[in-house]
């Protein structure tokens, strides 16, 4: 193989992340909706809500039973891209506390193979407050690595010294912009440089507009940016450019 083709190959598979600073630490945001922290080789995924469809089916709402498969395939693609030493699943990994128990064998095997040769941390969430059953990995309520703290639900404070370095999920941020008279709504990362709210990764998880009052307790009004998930890139906007639902 010539040097050039080898270079091009490397180039083609090198993941392109949008680098930002959180509490002085450089992390990458990826259009798949995961966070990549190259210095620590940590990949973060949030709000997968695995087995959401079957959770609904239990009470008679028969959603298509393909969500777990789709979500895990997306996760596998991200893990293959970044080959992280550690994966943090930032809470609401399963849609309900019995979700890990209901996980069909084929998906359990798939998840287990993704966990091979790397550390795996399950952060608890409000949907899954307990450790998943029959799965590897360590379960924690929150975890701090260097200047960053990973927890599911953001602290309801905006004091910068308190929340500096908080990486969280829970809110399923989504943003809407208007262009040429048509509006576009997408899941997004939301950050003010001190904390970061991750988009929901699950195939059947909707989003909450970042203009919703729930975000007033997380960011000072209009003082944050979002990175909307596109098909092959992220679209950054400042909060003032966003519209309500």
């Amino acid at each position: 193989m010539s040097a050039l083709t080898s270079y091009l190959d490397d180039f083609a598979i090198a993941p392109v992340c949008h680098d930002i600073q959180i509490n002085g630490e450089t992390v990458g945001l990826h259009e798949s909706g995961i966070l990549w922290w190259p210095d620590q080789s940590v990949m973060v995924v949030s709000d997968m809500h695995l087995e959401k469809a079957s959770s609904y089916a239990r009470r008679g709402v028969m959603l298509p039973p393909y969500d777990t498969g789709i979500t895990l395939e997306r996760l596998a693609a991200a893990i293959e891209t970044f080959d992280p030493a550690c994966v943090i699943s930032l809470g609401d990994s399963f849609h309900d506390p019995d979700g890990s128990d209901r996980l069909p064998p084929v998906y359990r095997a798939m998840l287990t193979s993704l966990q091979l040769n790397r550390d795996w941390i399950w952060v608890t969430g409000n949907h899954d407050p307990i450790a998943p059953v029959r799965l590897c990995g360590e379960t924690v309520d929150e975890i701090s690595i260097g200047p960053l703290t990973f927890r599911h639900e953001p602290l309801q404070k905006t004091d910068r010294d308190v929340i500096a370095g908080e990486i969280c999920g829970h809110l399923h941020p989504a943003a809407r912009v208007r262009r040429y008279g048509r509006s576009i709504r997408r899941s997004c990362f939301a950050t003010d440089g001190y904390r970061l709210v991750m988009p929901a990764f699950g195939a059947l998880t909707g989003g909450l507009n970042v203009n919703d009052p729930a975000f007033h307790l997380v960011f000072r009004r209009r003082q944050f940016s979002v990175f909307m998930l596109g098909n092959d890139r992220l679209y950054p906007f400042t909060a003032s450019r966003l519209i309500e639902d």
Partner: peptide, 17 residues
């Protein structure tokens, strides 16, 4: 709205699967 299931997502899942 983050807890309700969006019919758009269901549509996408059904079309592909």
């Amino acid at each position: 709205r983050q807890v309700t299931v969006s019919s758009d997502l269901i549509y996408d899942v059904l079309r592909s699967h």
